[in-house]
Nucleic acid binder design. Structure first.
Lengths: 134, 134
DNA sequence: CTTTGTGCAAATTCTTTGCACCAAA
DNA sequence: TTTGGTGCAAAGAATTTGCACAAAG
């Protein structure tokens, strides 16, 4: 798979499957969700390998590791800069387009090397906002 | 303490101490750091109470709960909107001023209620960037 | 009295680590 | 044969929860 080789990660059945999953599912899945989705097709797969792979891919910049959900890391195969909204009620994550990503880099102190920028929003999504069942 | 009452949190020795700590320490401390700092002065203090208090204060908007550090939640007594930079090497968090916070609210979908926005930067701080000891 | 806060101990849960086995070059 | 990947089981660690006791009004 070229996506992997391009990012200095040697392909393997497991790694390709994880990367492929992230490229085809825009749901910002957790490591466990990815594991559960792939396990039926790759019955020998282990959570450890999924974690290893995700860490590796994120280090190489092939995917994004999102900190928006305190409980578990979410992953995103789309590395183009954009924001994320987390609904506190249903847990859904939505992409938030960002007009001009440039503003965001201007304010860091000289000498600082930035490798990762995240723009996070939390609150209630439109659907959950209408519901009244506290 | 007025900061607490203003935010609908009944004052208590423990709560005042936590809030006070956050207002006087701009280090974005963890729950455990706050606990360890206050414990000598309040020997009956428990971690549970610190966690309870921090959750309460954050819910009420009296303090910020930061997701920048995956391992543990950091807290900030300064609720004025600003970004945060985390050095991956030394772990320090620096405040990043933000020119125009407005841009940030413009892109959320209609109907979405946003209660929390975080602008996170990660990388190497100026000092750590110079060091060569891998 | 009744409601709310505190604190101990135990539980929960995501993620990492140690180690043995397997695969590829 | 040497290097790196995989996977199981166990460890690690931040945070939450259940529950009993204390405090406040």
């Amino acid at each position: 798979m070229r996506y992997l080789a391009e990012n200095g990660v040697k392909p393997s059945v497991q790694r390709v499957a994880v990367m492929e999953y992230l490229l085809t599912h825009k749901t910002h899945p957790t490591a466990d969700e990815i594991f559960s989705a792939l396990y039926p097709r790759i019955p020998t797969l282990s959570r450890t390998t999924v974690y290893n792979t995700l860490n590796r891919l994120a280090e190489q910049g092939a995917i994004l590791s999102l900190d928006i959900d305190r409980e578990k890391t979410r992953y995103d195969g789309d590395t183009f800069f954009h924001g994320h909204f987390l609904c506190r009620r249903c847990g859904k994550i939505e992409d938030i387009p960002v007009g001009n990503p440039g503003y965001v880099r201007e304010m860091v102190p000289a000498g600082t090397r930035v490798t990762d920028i995240q723009l996070l929003y939390k609150g209630l999504c439109a659907e959950c906002g209408k519901k009244n069942d506290n």
